[in-house]
Write a protein that binds this DNA or RNA. Structure first.
Length: 231
DNA sequence: CACCAGGCAAGTA
DNA sequence: TACTTGCATGGT
């Protein structure tokens, strides 16, 4: 029997949730093809992208990254050295003052703790890194986990607005879980494989961008339109 | 024109 | 703890 105790709603039994995640992943891959995220030429570019794309359209983020490449400063030391020109270069990504400072703080951390070496950074265990990243200003849970999963190849699942909206609209979660509750619930119901975590998050973003906008959900030809948890 | 985008932090009560 | 607001550009 489903438990409904003490006012805490538990939308769906776990045994169904894992099947739902599997089904979402399989159907999305059928529909969109494998995404092989994160789209970037280097782990450092992933990190920069993760910060620049906060609440920002990916196309605008790409423009900002392209500007950094064009200027030849897409590495920790040069970003620090040329920090004065950052706002102009990353302008298309929006919040450019804020994000310039976030990038500067981040590369300072990378240089001071790891001499700018991502290889050295990767030696450190997952949850020590997560704690360090979350202590930096402007690095919240989603940004931290994106960096950990896609730049450092650590096994942690990324929750974003699309993930929450899609699972919520399909009644697979109640929607009021906090970030870590939702992350852990997903991790518990997924094969413990980094490649699965990477691909599922990528596919959820594809579904979200294409079929599950804030307003205007044209969910008719969405590959998971018929998936529903609970009732 | 309004609304949105691969968040986060600071302020308020 | 639970809301609200600022940050800002470019697409639809």
């Amino acid at each position: 029997m489903p438990r409904a105790r003490s006012g805490i709603s538990s939308p769906i039994p776990s045994v169904k949730f894992n099947e739902a995640l599997r089904e979402i992943l399989n159907r999305a891959i059928d529909h969109f093809g494998p995404q092989n995220w994160w789209p970037a030429d280097s782990p450092f570019e992933v990190m920069v992208g993760a910060i620049l794309t906060q609440n920002t359209n990916w196309l605008n983020t790409k423009r900002a990254i392209e500007n950094l490449k064009q200027a030849g400063i897409l590495n920790p030391h040069l970003i620090l050295k040329r920090r004065r020109i950052l706002p102009r270069l990353i302008r298309p990504a929006g919040y450019y003052q804020l994000k310039s400072q976030r990038l500067i703080n981040f590369v300072r951390y990378l240089i001071q703790q790891y001499r700018g070496s991502i290889t050295r950074m990767r030696q450190r265990p997952l949850f020590m890194l997560r704690k360090e990243l979350l202590a930096l200003p402007g690095i919240g849970p989603e940004t931290a986990d994106s960096i950990l999963l896609y730049a450092l190849n650590k096994r942690i699942f990324v929750i974003d607005a699309y993930t929450r909206r899609i699972l919520s609209r399909h009644n697979l979660i109640s929607g009021d879980e906090d970030y870590d509750q939702l992350r852990i619930r997903c991790e518990e119901n997924l094969p413990k494989r980094i490649s699965i975590y990477k691909e599922l998050h990528a596919q959820l973003v594809m579904i979200g961008k294409t079929f599950c906008r804030r307003n205007d959900p044209h969910c008719s030809d969405c590959p998971i339109a018929d998936l529903r948890g609970l009732s």
